[in-house]
Amino acid sequence: MSGRTDSITELVRMPPVSVVDPIARARVRDRLVDGVAAAVADLPSGALVEVTLASIRHARSHPEAACQSDEKFAWKPVFVRRSLGLAALRACVEGRFAGPASAVGPVADQAVEEWESTGQRAYHWEPWFSGLGVGGRAVVLAEATNWATSLWATFDWTALGSQIRIGGMDDLWTCPAPRTVRLKGRCEVRTRLDAVVNGRRTAGSDGGPSALVSVSGGVPAEGWREDLAYLALTAGLRAPDRPLPARVVGLWPDAAVERTVEIDEAALDAAVDRVVATVATVATVATVATVATVATVATVATVATVATATTAAA
């Protein structure tokens, strides 16, 4: 393994630097609820706002278009690469394949077979993928191979051992605000951090703090700290009885860049500010729109979903 691989692997294993106590955690939650409630006060009853990492970035970079999208969702290779890439990566870590290039094909075939035999779609893209010709499938597999290879080459998976979870469910939390505001957090890998016991470093326990790994396309943009902290905030809100993720590592494979945020109260506060600003931007755009109907605002969810898929794919 290279020095870079070793250092990034160490980043997702080393003991936490800071701990957020329960009182501070409750205060952060209250700030978020108050801020969001104020931001959505003018939205029509029944409106839904979904906040994702993609919508946060979009609202910051293109606030004027925070809830505009007429694009109808249609599958394309970049929308598949994250989920197929994660499944291929999992298969590689389990030792079933030597690398993503040999894993993506069998993993995709297996997903289609299961869908055809049971009718259950584990990834949603199975019907679309099965309808593609050889060349179309190859493009999908190539995209997934690229995506998975960037992660596969980043970590020393042997050193991480069993302390990892690849993919998994999104973190969802609904804010108790006058209008429905849903926060959705998605990371690619979760690792259990080591602990320090009696001055000695040991493997962390099941209920101990974790690190989240988030993969993005392009290069880190302004606000990347708050973006990464948002993932820890959402995970903490979803599971208030579990320790907060203590660290979030962001990977931008296109630029071969990694960035880390240690999660403390200040990082969470910054993430709360970003969420409130995002909701306020969306609410303002929706309210100013000529027809600020429930349907208009509801398109935010569609925008966020499409943007999430795009960003995850990118």
Binding site: K76, P77, G135, G136, V139
Partner: peptide, 11 residues
């Protein structure tokens, strides 16, 4: 046919 399939996969 393969190449056209590949192009058609992305709108």
């Amino acid at each position: 046919a393969d190449a056209m399939d590949g192009l058609c996969a992305d709108s």
